[in-house]
Structures are given as C-alpha cells and as structure tokens.
Amino acid sequence: MNPLTFAARRLGAALIILLILIATMFTLSHLSNTDPAHAYLGAGASKAAVAAERVKLGLNLPITTQFLHYVGNLLHGNLGVSYRTRNPVTQDLAEYLPATMELAFYAIILALLLGLALGIATAARWRGARILKFVMVSGASAPLFLLALLGILLFYGHLGWLPATGRTSIPNPPTGPTGFLTIDAILAGRFNVLLNALQHLIMPATVLAIGPAVSIGRVLRGSLVTVLREDYVRTARSKGLRDRAVLLRHALRNALGPALSMTGLQAGLLLAGDVVVEQIFAWPGIGYYAAQSIPVGDFPAISGVTLVLGLFYVLINALVDILQRVADPRVRA
C-alpha cells in the first residue's frame, strides 16, 4: 500500500475512534448524577428557574438532538462551562494546556532516551545486566506518587537542590508565543528563567518518564536480542567488528521499530500519570485542573480534560504508525 493511502486510512480510523470517545463522554454526561441545571444555579434555585435553565441548556430535547448539539458544540470548541471556575472549559483548558504540553514533551523525550539506554544496556553482555533488570522490575512496580514523594523528600527537603512546586519561581516569566516556558525564555533572552524552568522540570518529568522508560527498555531489549541472532549480525561480527559497533550501528536500527510503537502506547500511561504528578508538584497544567475538579464533581471540566488527552493519545499513536510505515519498508508488506 502506498504510504499516503495508508496515512489517510490510519487517520480515518483515528477519526472513528475519536467519535467513539465523544459518544462515550456524551453517555457519561447523562449518567452523571449531578444535574447541570442544579449545578449552575446552586442548591437554593427555584423549580421554575431550574426548568428554565434546563430549556436553556437544551436538556429537554430528544437525546439524539442533544447528541448532535453536543458534537456540533465540540466542533466549535465549546466544551460547556465548568461548575467550579464558572469559565468556559475551553478557556480554562487553553490556559492550563501549555504547561502540560511542555511537561509531557520533556517526559516523552526523557522516557525515550532512558528506554534506549536501558534496552541497550540490558541486551549487551556485561555483568551489570542482571542488576539492571532487577532495577527495571522495581521501576515498573513503583507507584508514581512514591517516586515523586521520595524525590521531593531527597532533592528538595534533604539536599535542597531542586524546587518542589510550580513551573518557575521567577516573577513575571515571559508568556507566549509558544507557551513552552523553556522556549519562550530563550526567545525573550532571559536565560535565568530558562535555567529556573529547567530546574522545575527535572523532577516531574523524570518521575513521569520512569514507568514508560522501563516498558520501552524491555521491548527494545526483546527486539535487540532477536535481531542479534540474525545472520547479518554474525557476518558483521565475523568481519571483526567490535561488539559495541555491531550493537549500536547494525542491530539497533533494525530493532528500533517495536520500541517506537511502545513509546506511542506509553504516551497513554504517561498522560494518565500526568494527573497525579501535576497534583503533587502543583504543576499548573490540565492534570492539575482535572485533579482540582474531581473532589467537587465538576464533570464538564473532567470531560474536557479527558477529550483533550484522548485526542492527543489517538493522534500520537496514528503518527507513530504512519512514521514507522515511512521509515521501515518491511512494515509496508
């Protein structure tokens, strides 16, 4: 199949999946035990006012019409109004999203690098490989909040090397044009902000990256071990190349595919963990927004966050599939 046709098909599938997600969220909003009309008007509202609000919100219409309205509103970027902040959810998300994007971006890069290192180190023949495998099982078993708490205890409480909360401690940081504080700081020429932002990023990004890194490392190790048994690797060895050159130059390229797919899949785990990590580190992203919305049952806000995270997840995985198709001719068969 032509790569372009494949890309179009893959994106079509992604679209259907997103529709299913939207239908799920619509169903959930109707299952929700909070009546939106009551939530907006407060407990003391009169019956007439609630009835009028229900009409205003379109809750008296047939369910199919409501669904079409719901989809139409989504396409216009209208996700409803948050019960808690009383702002349109879209506005809240726009405010909180850049921080999450930045954190997730660095966490995924870090997970990929760490995963590569772990995969190569455990596939190579040396004494530390066994110990490293044990460390990896531990990393995969540690709840995010344990890692986060231990990190704060050690690097903030005990050593005082790293800050524990927020994106930056410098007042009036540059805002825009990208929303990534690290990039905006470079563009504005304020390198003290860049340094400070990076310090704030280290702990949350590392905590988020460890779980996915272990999964990526395991998959990479598996495919490396398989590739290392192939004939061309033996040829490379027998023509006198050193182990390291064989591993890094010859085997790694061909073993990378499954690890990249895993990175896409792990993005989902990372996004779910993001909610926990942002709450612990008071990182002003959509995970923090969601965590604040959960105790008060602010369903429009939570549903908005779920839709955005779901959209990212589906797009990232479609992109990984398409890229792999382009990069590795063997997948095209």
């Binding site: 909003s29 959960i294 049952g297 369903f299 589906v314």
Partner: peptide, 16 residues
C-alpha cells in the same frame, strides 16, 4: 486505542 486510565477517571467522575 483509547487511553484506558484516563477514561476510567472520567467514568468514576461521572458515576461519583
């Protein structure tokens, strides 16, 4: 193809 844990958060939030 959907992020399960994220979806689970939404389901519990809706059900209470």
């Amino acid at each position: 193809a959907l992020p399960g844990p994220v979806l689970a958060i939404a389901v519990v939030a809706a059900l209470g």
